[in-house]
Design a binder for these strands. Sequence first.
DNA 1: CACGGTCCGTACGCCGCCGCACGGAGTGAG
DNA 2: CTCACTCCGTGCGGCGGCGTACGGACCGTG
Lengths: 236, 236
Amino acid sequence: MHSPEHNHLLDALPAADQERLFPHLKLVTLPLGSVLYESGDTQRYIYFPVDSIVSLLYVLKDGASAEIAVVGNDGAVGVALFMGGMTMTNRAIVQSAGVAYRLTSKRLEQEFARHGTLLHVLLRYTQALITQMAQTAVCNRHHSVDQQLCRWLLLALDRLKSNKLIMTQELIANMLGVRREGVTEAAGRLQRAGVIEYRRGKITVVDRERLQLMSCECYEVVRDETRRLLPERPRE
Amino acid sequence: MHSPEHNHLLDALPAADQERLFPHLKLVTLPLGSVLYESGDTQRYIYFPVDSIVSLLYVLKDGASAEIAVVGNDGAVGVALFMGGMTMTNRAIVQSAGVAYRLTSKRLEQEFARHGTLLHVLLRYTQALITQMAQTAVCNRHHSVDQQLCRWLLLALDRLKSNKLIMTQELIANMLGVRREGVTEAAGRLQRAGVIEYRRGKITVVDRERLQLMSCECYEVVRDETRRLLPERPRE
DNA sequence: CACGGTCCGTACGCCGCCGCACGGAGTGAG
DNA sequence: CTCACTCCGTGCGGCGGCGTACGGACCGTG
């Protein structure tokens, strides 16, 4: 059914590392909306999503929020564990339900101390994460809600098997850090343009190519840089 | 005159590491506006600023830009070298002239392979950098130009000895990713409020406390998190 | 001292997004 | 089937920041 190799980072490890590490991975289900860690929490696990998607969400004191990165089977949640900080100033919340493999911080530490491939893979992934955050920052500054909605849909789509996602406009608004009505209008335009269809929390992308054309450059930059840093192993 | 220990990261190393490393550091002067690396460039050095300040600037295809992080004697420029990516998607530009110590990528690699304190210090600093980028992203989304100008001035001030900075409103606008006129108006308000004084590219902060009050929470969050991750060694 | 260039002040129209409010449509539970 | 609730559509006033334009003030240089 599920296998650790469905996560790209775990898949990138040499066989010897996999044999040593995989027995310690625990498969957990991540229900929609569950919080993997809160700002300032000491994190206990690192998560390697398989078919789930996790948002790194920053919540301001007044309750306003903005997504700073999104993690799927291309990455891992909990980089603070090996960076040395143990906590982060953001929240990790499940955006799309699914499963993930998790590793205890202790076991991760041991594996890290070996200075093997896992370290290098995780560091490269962290750089990809940095790229995504930087791009989010500049995108928040310069691009319209319409463009950002396209970008966001593409990011989600790449991390799912299907072209359907379960997500209300209200939640998307929280992620993008804009009003719900703004998302309604942007999504309405996309629907009228025949790019997506949606209905009460279910969005279907029907014309991915045009979605990409209507998006800002930010999506492609992040995607290309992630591929550069972590090329997918060709599946035999 | 200058010493590597004026950079907090280098200062945090144990004596043995310093003795091994410091002979390989080269003191270089960084003139205002010089570019340490460009987006996509293979970086040759890692820089440890002493009294200079370097901006990590993202430049969009259409020329619009936004600062994603600022580095002074609290950090290092060129984290991609040890993250494994070798290049980044942004530009590193000198925002305040001064000097820095630099290390060749090769020497850094050798030092990194020892898995000593430098590795841990740089990883912790990278996490602080991530925090700063995340905060920048959410700040770009939710806070006014006035607040962001305050935050930006405080970030610069913390990395300088004096309360004066050489910086035109035009350049600040590039950093914040807003119009020059927007900065003019925000700075005018600050001047009328008696918080700063400025005149043709020279800004003097006269009431730092009030500047902090008028800033958004983003400044303090980043400052506190950086202190948590990299506490300054008490100078004997 | 005059001149050219940089830097800053101000003004105007415009647009995108915000905040608020309300209503309708779809959905699930009883 | 009905009711309560969630989710989405729409409208309106307001504002903050954008683009543009112009002019004045302050230098540094010759």
